[in-house]
Simulated assay, not measured.
Amino acid sequence: MLPRPQTAICNALIRRSIDLLLLYRRAAAGCEPGLRMVLGENVHTLQLLIADLQEQLRAGGVGPRDHGSWRGVVHRHVTGWLVRIVARRDGAWIRALSHHESALLHAFEQAIECMPVESALVLRRQMPRLRGIHLDMHSLAGSARY
């Protein structure tokens, strides 16, 4: 079983991941079909990441979080409102998602640094998934500038 502070860190990462997943879903609902497909793939990757983290906590005898944070709700609504007022909505969604994705990647990296090696192993296994999303969003953000 993970010690309480490490459980809290994992649950916080789960909540942030759920927040990002819901933001991706909202963005995909209003984007063109090609971008919607890419965002859908990232949603699927985040679902796998969240399920894996939740399962790890359950295996340790801890009840994992299954919903996002109130901040995520606010971010989704504010971002949706801001995107509606810009001319290039797809580009605005890409930049917003890229920003939140980078923040999630950074949160995982910080959590890995502050956790003991054995506990951080669970998070390290998720890094390839997060880096894959990061590369997708980075390349999309680069092309959305034009």
Results as ranks from 00 to 15, higher is better:
2 L>K: 05
3 P>W: 01
10 C>T: 15
14 I>N: 01
18 I>D: 00
20 L>P: 03
21 L>K: 15
21 L>W: 07
25 R>A: 11
28 A>R: 13
30 G>C: 01
32 E>K: 12
32 E>P: 00
34 G>L: 12
36 R>H: 10
37 M>Y: 10
40 G>N: 02
40 G>E: 06
42 N>R: 05
44 H>S: 13
44 H>A: 15
45 T>R: 12
46 L>M: 15
47 Q>Y: 00
48 L>T: 11
48 L>S: 10
52 D>L: 05
52 D>F: 08
54 Q>W: 05
56 Q>P: 01
56 Q>F: 07
59 A>T: 13
60 G>N: 09
64 P>R: 04
65 R>V: 06
68 G>K: 03
71 R>L: 15
71 R>K: 13
73 V>H: 12
75 H>M: 15
76 R>F: 02
79 T>Q: 08
81 W>S: 14
81 W>V: 11
86 V>H: 04
87 A>E: 10
88 R>H: 13
98 S>E: 14
99 H>K: 14
104 L>P: 02
108 F>M: 04
111 A>C: 05
113 E>G: 06
113 E>T: 12
118 E>G: 07
119 S>C: 11
120 A>C: 05
126 Q>G: 04
126 Q>T: 01
127 M>T: 07
128 P>M: 03
128 P>T: 04
129 R>Q: 08
130 L>Q: 06
134 H>V: 01
135 L>W: 07
135 L>K: 10
135 L>V: 13
138 H>W: 10
140 L>E: 03
146 Y>N: 12
146 Y>K: 08
